[in-house]
Design a protein around this nucleic acid. Sequence first.
DNA 1: CCGGAATTTCAATGATCGTTGAATTTAGGT
DNA 2: ACCTAAATTCAACGATCATTGAAATTCCGG
Lengths: 133, 133
Amino acid sequence: MLNIVRSVRIAYFRGMKPVSHPDMDMVEPAAVFAALADPIRLAVVVALADGEEVEARCGSFCDLASPSLLTYHFAKLREAGVTKARVEGTSRFISLRREEFDRRFPGLLDSVIEAARRDPNLPRIPDGQLVRG
Amino acid sequence: MLNIVRSVRIAYFRGMKPVSHPDMDMVEPAAVFAALADPIRLAVVVALADGEEVEARCGSFCDLASPSLLTYHFAKLREAGVTKARVEGTSRFISLRREEFDRRFPGLLDSVIEAARRDPNLPRIPDGQLVRG
DNA sequence: CCGGAATTTCAATGATCGTTGAATTTAGGT
DNA sequence: ACCTAAATTCAACGATCATTGAAATTCCGG
């Protein structure tokens, strides 16, 4: 039974989980601010912006919260159009949806990141901890 | 008993209610985004930014919500450092804390307003409804 | 095929949020 | 002194949120 479901999934997605990203034109400003209204998620955004690598393995953020909670927060950011996720084996890599987001909300992401950087109480992620490979 | 309280208030505040505004340096970015994560509050911010007058009577926003609910939303915006309130008789006037906010979070308010303007589902307030006197 | 690593799913929890309505405060006008 | 207008306060409610932990999924390597 489960095997049938898996076969169908494989047939449709070639082994990749259906990680759905919203159409950027459908993203509502209020939803974006709701996504940014959490210290953990703000920390993720800042880390992605400040990190040397564009992409970061999800597990790189394990200092911020438990794996289960991270999944929850990543989904919030993704559904708000802020980040995108790419699947590779059992790992996932997330990155900012820079170009698209900037086209829809010019200047917003930059000033958000600049504002968040100014928060001394925001949890930081040591540079070099955001592994890509 | 109540008279005593009132006398003290008058002595300290000269008849004005103690409407407390937070020190801008203490305002946390996440709190700002939480304040902006609501359609009604976003509509208020946009209306204040687009209106001809700098200040607006609170009652001008009665299209958006009930008086009681407006009080709640105004408090959220005020506590996040986005707006300030001035008391005059039984009326209150609110306005954006432009200069202070911009000094703390440069460019943020502008791109927030520009982003919110782009939302077709955001409740609008007819121009000229934001009375000042 | 088995085991482990990376991540998701699910149900449950306490906390906070947005909303309502009724009662209260405050000040100005007649 | 009353009446009214403007706004606040308070208690209640359902809804959503952040968090936890245990179980399940998925894939890779021996």
